[in-house]
Design a protein around this nucleic acid. Sequence first.
DNA 1: ACGATATAGGACTATTTAGTCCACTTTACT
DNA 2: AGTAAAGTGGACTAAATAGTCCTATATCGT
Lengths: 208, 208
Amino acid sequence: MTTADPRNGRRLTARGAKTRARIVAAATDLMYVKGVGATTLDDVLAASGVSKSQLYHHFDGKDALVRAVIDNVGERVIEREREALGHVSTIRGLRRWRDVLVQNNALRHGAYGCALGSLASEVSDHDALAREALSRLFAEWQGLLAGVLRRLQDDGVLPPDASVDQLATGLMAALQGGYMLAQTARDVTPMATAIDMVLAHIESLSKR
Amino acid sequence: MTTADPRNGRRLTARGAKTRARIVAAATDLMYVKGVGATTLDDVLAASGVSKSQLYHHFDGKDALVRAVIDNVGERVIEREREALGHVSTIRGLRRWRDVLVQNNALRHGAYGCALGSLASEVSDHDALAREALSRLFAEWQGLLAGVLRRLQDDGVLPPDASVDQLATGLMAALQGGYMLAQTARDVTPMATAIDMVLAHIESLSKR
DNA sequence: ACGATATAGGACTATTTAGTCCACTTTACT
DNA sequence: AGTAAAGTGGACTAAATAGTCCTATATCGT
């Protein structure tokens, strides 16, 4: 059985796909914990138990690997958020979504920040392709938030003139900024506070 | 004439201080544009026109240089924000503060993000001392914002039960998250939108 | 079954990078 | 003026790192 290689459409056997996935999985973990710049290809090889030629067989180089990691992280985050937000249509549901993110982040005392946000701020100024991919992912994530707000609007909870997309932007920014402040303070509190402020704002709009 | 060396109290001549400052200035620029990880000591030497022994005379190594850069950036940002926010006591003044940040960021189309925020997300998980310094700087910056809100409260614009510190946290998070989204999108809009949302929230609290 | 292609292992190279060392010059202070 | 400390220049080393190359094995399509 063969499948298309995400990189260049080259044929890929089941075995090859598995090796490729192992490389990406190891790189994803390392880059999340150590950062992209501090993760060497040798680190990835050691963690995945794969040889160098295999890495270069599947990826043109470090940049290509980083892009594969972004795709991988993005896919997981978007899927997670789609499940978490896809059917939310109440402010209460939005608060539950907040609780999950806050509690997960609290487990690491804020360390490492948002998987997507950390990648974005490290890579955006260096690799245009990676930046664009991250930009699309943020847009998609934000679209899920906007979807929730739109449902609130459709249910009459938010007034028709509420600018759903701008609220979603503000919520995403508060989330990402909160992640970053929590990472710097090694304390999840600022992240929780920032999201709460936006949710309070959204709630206040519904009480007119 | 001699002054205390910021690093270890060693005596420092005017000439030495000048060399040290040149190193820090070059490193600051490079690390802002290229990122900390992608900036090599050789880059710093080339940009500052200084020899390697001088760099190691003034700093114990790259980590120490990064910390000096953080102090330098922090000092400039805090001074800038102190001037911008120190005497603001109206929402109108807060909007003008917003305009300056947005316009400055628009000049680079969002690139590089916040000088402090970019350092924070790259360094926080790698160097505890640097993280703590950045955490103190964010707290100081946020304190300036809280000062503005407190003045609004004292003037009766914000109600006495408004949680000024939490609003300042939310504003800082939106600002930082906005910087990051703008950097990823290469478009200042999300940053402007995020701050505007928080300012709208603050304004809505004043209309009770 | 068999040729073609994908996959695997790992030694090897060239370059970059942090960090060291030492000879020499300038400055501060009495 | 003299001397000790600070400052300077740059060659040098060791380690790390990205990337190449060649050989061998496994798998696929026919």
